[in-house]
């Protein structure tokens, strides 16, 4: 890794859709004060962008929505990681893989726009991305703008102590676990008792379409109505990311990163944490089916998902040069072993 001769890299936003924001790993422990975790819509992709640069997974990155982003490097040089969904990535006129590591130099233009799948992409820089903090974190809470904030056309993006790591450049593998999820595992409840007897069966039997009413707070679905048992209202109670809440009209919505922390609509089911990133990567008009698992099965899914994630992030954190070296050494060693074995009577 080579420290760039300049202490800062400066970039400017040439074009930018809505809901492009700064996000670190999330703001935890403040739900009791009305503050959801926020953070990346797809935490695996966000972590991967940093892992590929060999830096802490919860550092700040730019989250890119389906509105896309085009950014120009004005001064300095910096290596960056791009991940998330199947976006179109173009680096100074040349197409790149949707998940890759590139180095931006003064005059370079990087554009990231939505492709065949995925709703959120991440752009992480080797170095420290400068932006506002709130409650100690940079994650942007989109309804209020608290945190690092939204990016807009003309905004300046500053990376302190930018690094150029040519040995890390190249394409990244897109793991199966980073794909959009069309079969979504849920634990039923906590308010199944508030629904008509057939509502749970309808939820698990039918498919639901993602609508364009989709932002960082949640995703409204279209599908058969899930009827409430009666007009009974429940006292406002705590919500989590992944709550499937049903309004008085019988329409289901999935609550996501910037959800309200309490609410009075009943929740028919709650998506398990291992499937949340994959749900967030669905695009409007994609269809999903819900599959019920027990709470205990949900815990096991969380544990195996964490293990797969850890392994994947560990693999891409090894720089390509180091990896090539290691593979070559292993070849040499196994070659030696092989010849030693061959000469052994």
């Amino acid at each position: 890794m080579i420290a760039s001769t300049m202490r800062e890299a400066r970039l400017s936003v040439r074009s930018c859709g809505p809901l492009v924001s700064y996000q670190d790993g999330g703001r935890f422990g403040m739900m009791r004060f009305g503050v959801p975790h926020s953070g990346p819509m797809d935490s695996l992709a966000h972590a991967a962008a940093h892992a590929a640069l060999g830096q802490p997974h919860d550092a700040t990155a730019i989250e890119i929505s389906m509105g896309g982003l085009e950014i120009v490097c004005e001064s300095g040089s910096v290596t960056c990681g791009i991940t998330g969904g199947g976006f179109h990535v173009v680096h100074s006129g040349t197409g790149a893989a949707p998940w890759c590591v590139r180095t931006l130099r003064a005059g370079d233009v990087l554009s990231v726009h939505p492709g065949s799948w995925g709703s959120w992409a991440y752009l992480a820089f080797a170095g420290e991305l400068l932006c506002n903090r709130w409650g100690g974190r940079t994650s942007t809470h989109s309804p209020s703008g608290l945190g690092g904030g939204m990016l807009a056309r003309g905004a300046e993006v500053v990376v302190r102590n930018p690094q150029v790591s040519e040995e890390r450049e190249g394409d990244l593998p897109v793991p199966h676990l980073a794909r959009a999820r069309t079969i979504v595992r849920v634990v039923l409840g906590p308010q199944t008792a508030q629904f008509a007897p057939d509502a749970t069966a309808t939820l698990l039997r039918e498919s639901f379409a993602v609508t364009s009413r989709y932002d960082r707070m949640g995703m409204r679905l279209a599908g058969p109505a899930l009827h409430l048992r009666d007009a009974l209202s429940i006292p406002s109670e705590p919500l989590v990311r992944g709550s499937v809440q049903v309004g008085g009209d019988g329409v289901a919505s999935i609550l996501l990163a910037d959800h309200q922390t309490t609410g009075g609509y009943p929740k028919i089911a709650t998506i398990v944490s291992s499937d949340i990133d994959g749900v967030a990567q669905l695009q409007p008009r994609d269809r999903v089916r819900f599959q019920s698992v027990s709470a205990g099965e949900g815990v096991l899914l969380a544990r195996s998902h964490a293990e797969s994630t850890r392994r994947y992030l560990g693999d891409i954190a090894v720089s390509r040069v180091t990896l090539d070296d290691r593979l070559m050494q292993e070849n040499l060693i196994s070659g030696v072993v092989a010849s030693a074995e061959a000469s052994t009577p």
């Binding site: 739900m31 009791r32 006292p235 406002s236 109670e237 705590p238 989590v240 969380a302 964490a306």
Partner: peptide
């Protein structure tokens, strides 16, 4: 335990399933 969220008639305890 990650965090607790008190509301009007109940309390949600959020934990680390690992």
């Amino acid at each position: 335990i990650a965090e607790c969220i008190p509301a009007l008639v109940n309390l949600l305890i959020d934990f680390d399933p690992l």
